[in-house]
Design a binder for these strands. Sequence first.
RNA 1: GCCGAUGUAGCUCAACUGGCAGAGCAGUCCCUUCGUAAGGGAAAGGUUGUCGGUUCAAUUCCGACCAUCGGCUCCA
Length: 600
Amino acid sequence: MNNIETIRHSLSHIMAMAVKNLYPNTKFGIGPAIDNGFYYDFDLPRQSFEGAKAGLSIDDLPKIEKEMQAIIKSNIDFIKKEIFQDEAEKLFANQPYKLELVKELTSTGKTGVTIYTSGDFTDLCAGPHIENTKEINPLSFKLTKVAGAYWKGDEKNKMLTRIYGLAFATETELTDYLKILEEAEKRDHRKLGRELDLFLIDPTVGMGLAMWQPKGAMLWRIMEDFWYQEHLKNGYELVRTPHIGSRKLWETSGHWGFYNESMYPPLEVSQTLKEAQEGKKSEIKEEYLLKPMNCPFHVSIYNSKPRSYRDLPIRWAECGTVYRYEKSGELSGLTRVRGFTQDDAHIICAKTQVKDELKRVADFIIFILNTFGFKEFNVYLSLRDPNNKEKYAGNDEGWEFTQKVLEEVAKEQGLNYKKEEGEAAFYGPKLDYKIKDCLGREWQCSTLQFDFNLPERFDMTFINQKGEKERPFVLHRALFGSFERFIGVLIEHYAGSFPVWLSPTQAIVLPIGESHQTYGQEVLKTLKQNNIRAQINLNNDTIGKKIRESEMQKIPYILVVGDKEIKANSVAVRSRNEDLGVMTTEKFIDTIKQKVETKK
RNA sequence: GCCGAUGUAGCUCAACUGGCAGAGCAGUCCCUUCGUAAGGGAAAGGUUGUCGGUUCAAUUCCGACCAUCGGCUCCA
């Protein structure tokens, strides 16, 4: 019995064989097994005839798939061989990418490499592989997409054509997985955002700039109110800061130098808009930049007066809207936008307090994620790339201390984290919490970051017990990450059926006929007086239709009122396809209040 | 930004190889006043993403641009 990983990897070779048969002069990149399947990167030959497309498109996949099936059916062996460097270089003389890899592999002192031959295709590969293609069910894989991918993942390198495939042990598993993907599409937050009237993005307003409709804005408000309450309980204070800051501020913070690729260009101010429209010329006097981060403002507040060790730790929180100039192709719904609001906070503390503060935040993050229904997420410890120190601000000692203490905290909190070198921010290492979206893509939401860059750059100090100036540490953290992204994954997590405490509309009153409208209005009024977010549907429609519409809007409670309910001063409650029977309005209010209380 | 695909009414989609752009839902109006997922009817709704080209004629063919989607890179 073969490991599915091995089968996936072998399928990537078989795909390469098929591509080689169909496009003889292809140069090959790499082809690994991945979650649920495999891919292979190709540098395809230029089509000689006129009018031919440069690369492959999704329409070419069935052809390649057919060729792969033919290869599988001809029972081809995979043969492993160890060869020396000079042999390998000769073998891959016409394969520049393979040659590059051979040279890399042997540069570390290894004398030879492993190759696998299947049919007339030989690949540089560590294996393992199946022994013969007859071990593969030709119907249990499917090529799914064509994409561009940079050689070695570096955007300075040439872009190759990557073909992705899905592969499972059996045909049933494949069709099941395709069904899951289809279901997942239905909970896409971009689709639900439109259907449920939560938010919209209008290119005329600007790419990656979300606008919130009443229901979406209500959801945001509920989250924000909850957030403030919890922060006050947790010993935070609130601050507020502007959306733009002078060039000088960003030069001091280091963003001007380290973060300029992600910032909107400066607003150059020297005159009024009117003067500018009239074509008056003048010298630039002031330059402002839209803030990509809130940190420098919080630091400026800190530095506005001398601080004592007695003031520490300081915990300052702000839901601050920031703007980042993301490349156009990177934008995606709410999960990747250009303007977003971070639920930000900075904790300024002495070195001795760092560990306790980190632990407090780690606990806070888990509390928030659990409250919003996320029980599954992946944690990453993002460290500096030790081979590329120019990318980062700060000195070695700072990095060593902060990376060490962050890892200690991750361990002591029992987090099942993964280390990732080269993923740190330019100003410090971080602990990232990523949540999966409906298509299995991971999005960084909560983050706990060290910043030992700002204290230096802004010369932050406090007076310690000995009466000496001491440098504080700055922790930067966000629990949602950003409202936009968090709401995006929240929509997908609940497929739009939010728990009662989060639902923008918690209940809708549906009078059966015209004669029940007055009573319906009274019920609505009572609900509103009890702080329940309720609506009424007075449309001239059948009760069946009104129920259908309310269900499609994913409103948690539907209250049908007719003659019977008027007589008993009650409501007939339906909750997400379930009949809860008739109850008094008071009883219903109690039910809903309890749900809100317990965040259900 | 790069590779590939897509773009028709508010939404979901039609329109064979170029020949007056259609339907359902939503919205509006009229009838109906209904008991747990769509009651009936009418009128209305469009510079086919934008700009240019080929043609007697372009939603359809060609080019450029814009936007969106799937990836890559990047990232809260």
